[in-house]
């Protein structure tokens, strides 16, 4: 059985769900951020697979832009995490409850 579009989409689905699980379950800001990267990569895989099987290169252009935006997002997010750590000495979401009533 040759590999088709569905195979790639199933791999993408699995990676996306793993990333979502990480964001929901892990409580460390850095690991949550890495799970977000995993979700972005899963979307990239789906887009490249669609681009190949539908003969449309625009999917790859989209992936190009997603990678760029993800790089900017990582830089800003990590700077925010470092600033937060400087002030609160923690990178744990459960310790960041000052808005809780």
């Amino acid at each position: 059985m040759s590999v088709g579009l569905t195979h790639y989409l199933v791999v993408s689905l699995l990676l996306f769900c793993l990333g979502l699980f990480g964001v929901l379950v892990r409580r460390n800001l850095l690991v949550m951020f890495m799970s977000l990267e995993l979700m972005l990569n899963a979307a990239n895989l789906a887009l490249v697979a669609f681009a190949r099987y539908h003969h449309n290169l625009s999917g790859q252009i989209m992936v190009f832009f997603i990678i760029t935006v993800a790089a900017a997002e990582v830089a800003v997010g990590l700077a925010l995490i470092v600033a937060l750590y400087r002030q609160r000495r923690t990178a744990h979401v459960e310790d960041l409850a000052s808005l809780r009533l």
Binding site: V3, Y8, V11, L30, F33, M34, E37, N41, N44, L45, V48, A49, A51, R52, Q60, V63, F64, I67, A70, A71, V74, A75, L78
Partner: peptide, 27 residues
């Protein structure tokens, strides 16, 4: 590797350079 199998060679290179190189070093 999957990108290479999908004939997206440039994106595979960018993926290694940007993600495995720059982003992960930042992490």
């Amino acid at each position: 590797g999957l990108f290479v199998l999908l004939h997206a060679f440039f994106l595979a290179a960018v993926q290694i350079l940007v993600y495995a190189g720059a982003v992960m070093v930042l992490f």
